[in-house]
Simulated scan of single mutants.
Amino acid sequence: MIDYSLKGPVSQERARIRLMSALRENRFPQAILIDGPTGIGKKALAMEIAKALQCTDPAGRPCGHCFGCRMAAESGATENWIIPLEAAEARAKKAEDATARSTAKTIEDIKQDYIKEIIKNPYRVDIFSAAAFISVELMRTMTSSFAMRGDRVRTVIIAEADRMNEAASNAFLKTLEDVPPDTYFILTTSSREKMLQTIRSRCLALHLLPLTDDEVQKEAARVADEDFDRTMLTDDVVGMAVGSPGKALYYAPLCEQWNPLAVDFIRKSLLQDYTDLFFALKEASLEDPYVANRFLEVMSFLVADLLRELGGAPLRMPTTTASIGLKNFPRIDATALELALVDIQETMSRIESRRATTTMSLQTLALKLFEGYK
């Protein structure tokens, strides 16, 4: 029997044991859906699975050095990945259609750049823009390449599978109904509820757990760029990440700006000091919906921490939360904080759906926050 060993954090060992058992017993499903919070390592596990499936070592898999393993972790093997692209990127020419004199990037070049970033840091949460999606053309290109597979095992990682548009979802569903032999699809998502139920039902569901705070700090420091200041991975940053090394790395350089701004947002909303608050929001450059919602995540963590403070529970962001000075606002109780969390979530949904500009949404939230308790 071939031995399989998938690497990863201890917190996710149960999921890996389940996969290794299926690999050893030769009953691995042809489609698997890995879901869990953003930035916890779903793509890292997907690449480990791809290496294990494509590895040709007769004893231990993945070996990490055979042709199959190298192909699974090689950015040039763009046919092994389906990733979200912005509309302009998705319209780029294929390499086979580009002229010799063309200097524009082909769609393979664009995909390769993204895949390089994923391989370098699979926890990263801001690789794809909010407008990126998986088009039906990407699905058709994938299925047309099956004929060139030969007799080798083929794995396809579909990153952020919830971003498939309707046409892409329907095309992929047809592929799932008749998967070619020795072909395996590994889907990752942080929003499985956005996917077609018929696709979800045809995949083995695997839920990944967030990491411990110690694991977050260790993994974030391991994959960070050489010039990244690892002292920025403070207890507040790690607490804010809630088990996600990707979020820890994303929030760390922004904490000096965002944490004080989030504290100001809450305090100035309570004090009804809107003029200064609106000016501070403008200076913070939160026009991008993705960035604005990450800031609101910080806000929601702070409000949730205030709830913990009221209940006497340990704080996730002790230094930042203490700076709000909740005791100076005696009218704020658990109900007020719970309503504030609802208001923040509704604002995030409004921003994500682009029903209003981020500036208008944030200003409306400031006026509404703690309404009736000020």
Rank of each mutant, 00 (worst) to 15 (best):
L206Q: 03
M232H: 11
L173R: 07
T234Y: 06
A159R: 08
G243D: 11
A167W: 01
T212V: 04
L209N: 15
D236I: 11
I158D: 04
D227K: 14
D213K: 13
D214A: 13
T234V: 10
L208C: 06
D229F: 10
P180Y: 09
F228Y: 14
G239K: 10
K194S: 08
S244I: 02
D229V: 10
D162G: 08
D235K: 15
R200H: 03
A167N: 09
K247W: 01
Q197M: 14
L208G: 05
D182T: 05
S191F: 14
S201P: 02
I158Y: 02
R200A: 05
K194A: 09
A161P: 01
V223K: 03
F185M: 06
P253C: 15
M232G: 10
Q197N: 13
Y251T: 00
S244N: 06
T189Y: 05
D225K: 12
N170K: 06
L176C: 09
R230K: 15
K218T: 14
S244Q: 04
I186G: 03
L208N: 03
A224M: 08
V156F: 02
M164I: 05
S190P: 10
P245Q: 04
D162M: 07
D178F: 08
T175R: 01
S169M: 06
G246E: 03
A168F: 04
A167T: 07
R163P: 04
R192S: 15
F172N: 01
Q217D: 11
E160G: 08
V242M: 14
V223R: 00
V216H: 11
A161V: 08
F172S: 01
R163H: 01
T231M: 10
L187N: 00
P180S: 09
T234P: 08
E160A: 12
K218L: 13
Y250K: 05
D225I: 12
A248G: 09
L211V: 01
G243H: 04
G243S: 07
D213Y: 07
D227N: 14
D236T: 07
L208E: 01
A224I: 00
A248L: 10
T198F: 00
A167C: 03
G243T: 04
S169W: 03
I158A: 09
T175G: 02
I157G: 07
A241R: 05
V242D: 15
V242P: 02
E219Y: 15
T198G: 01
D227E: 14
L196R: 02
E215H: 05
T188F: 03
Q217E: 13
M195L: 13
M240N: 13
M195H: 00
R230Y: 07
D214E: 15
D227A: 12
S244G: 05
V242N: 15
M164H: 00
D178A: 15
R230D: 07
D182F: 11
T231E: 13
E226S: 13
D236M: 09
A241K: 05
L204V: 10
V237E: 10
V223C: 07
A159L: 11
G239I: 04
T212S: 15
Y250A: 04
T188Y: 11
K194E: 10
S169N: 00
T212Q: 08
A167K: 06
L249G: 00
Q217S: 13
A220E: 06
L173V: 01
D182K: 14
A205T: 14
E160T: 04
Y251Q: 02
D213T: 05
V237Y: 09
L206K: 02
L173N: 07
D236S: 08
F185V: 09
